[in-house]
Design a protein around this nucleic acid. Structure first.
Lengths: 189, 189
DNA sequence: GTCCGTCAACTAACTGGTTAGTCAAGTAGG
DNA sequence: CCTACTTGACTAACCAGTTAGTTGACGGAC
């Protein structure tokens, strides 16, 4: 085994394992020993690299946020398509949405919101405002309200309680079509 | 001390205390000792009355579900108003929504969905279908899809990540107006 | 009417397993 | 040999659940 092995690689393996653990069980439910076992490294390495359990979650959360921001390019003049893309990303990474929800429930209260997210939202709001001024997007709602609506509808199925899925269409394509169409209806000038 | 005291009252106190504890910390994060202390009863009574921690959560969850179903009378011909009412209930009981979210994350996978919720959803879907047939609600989406849309939008602000609140209007009245208007726009025939 | 057995409701103290976090020692590469 | 990295073994605290026993109400026997 490589003791002076690749620390970078060890960190990556730990974050990957922690991602699954936290997404499945949250901070309180996650087991540090389980993360270490899954990553195939000694538990003490977690404390060496990340300080504590909380630090490990922070590392995972930052990775997910950056990844999410990178995967969904924003175009204020094509909000329905953007919503569809968000839907696709959520569909492909259901664990990421769980992780964000755990964050909201367990940590958001005593954690300052990530600067990257605030900045990203701000630029999106400005872009929407510009599109509104150009008459490409409805002026019925404020730019921030539109962004909130788009994101809410894009993620509506993942946030929905599972009981709802029994009554609603299970076909992903139909769910996606609904998301795109609903956003289109709402943001039409 | 009343040993053969009011068991009903003891149960109520425990459920009440557990409600706050679970809403704040979830199942894994909740502390049984803390619930007992808050309720002012002996910890063993929790196991006497509810079997285990899980049973206590189930009791709390059932109470919340029944309460929620009772508080929001459904009228398929007035979906925007219904969304507004759901918004109001959520605004008045933020803890209830947290509890439902905890349930979804921690228990929904291995818990059969409550029959009461399924039945309630089914009757709502049927009512919407009837309103669609009468031309009072758009036929662009299926009845189940409309219900999903209405509920998603009604709860959009509570589900939204807190970062969003920084960019969006903090005025509850404005948030409510948006919810009602967006639903109206979507369900108009 | 009082004695006694039963039972639901309740309690204080305990247990055994778990868990986050620590530490001293060791290993390889530069 | 020194720095960065890794390890097995350890611990102190925590926490869900248990246990053995107490309390008072109720009801039937005499």
């Amino acid at each position: 085994m490589p003791p002076a092995g690749d620390a970078q690689e060890t960190r990556r393996r730990l974050v990957e394992a922690a991602y699954r653990e936290f997404a499945a069980h949250g901070v309180a439910g996650a087991r540090v020993d389980r993360v270490a076992a899954t990553a195939g490294v000694n538990k003490a390495l977690i404390y060496f690299h990340f300080g504590n359990k909380e630090g490990l979650f922070t590392a995972v959360f930052e990775m997910i946020v950056n990844q999410a921001l990178a995967e969904a390019p924003f175009d204020a003049t094509k909000l329905p398509e953007y919503a569809g893309r968000i839907f696709d990303v959520g569909e492909a990474n259901p664990e990421a949405l769980r992780l964000v929800t755990w964050h909201r429930l367990e940590r958001a209260a005593d954690q300052p919101p990530p600067q990257a997210v605030i900045a990203a939202n701000q630029s999106k709001v400005e872009a929407i405002a510009k599109a509104q001024a150009a008459g490409q997007v409805t002026a019925r709602y404020t730019a921030a309200e539109i962004l909130a609506l788009v994101l809410s509808i894009a993620n509506m199925w993942t946030v929905m309680s599972p009981e709802m899925h029994l009554a609603a269409p299970t076909d992903p394509a139909a769910r996606r079509a609904l998301v795109v169409d609903a956003v289109a209806t709402l943001v039409r000038p």
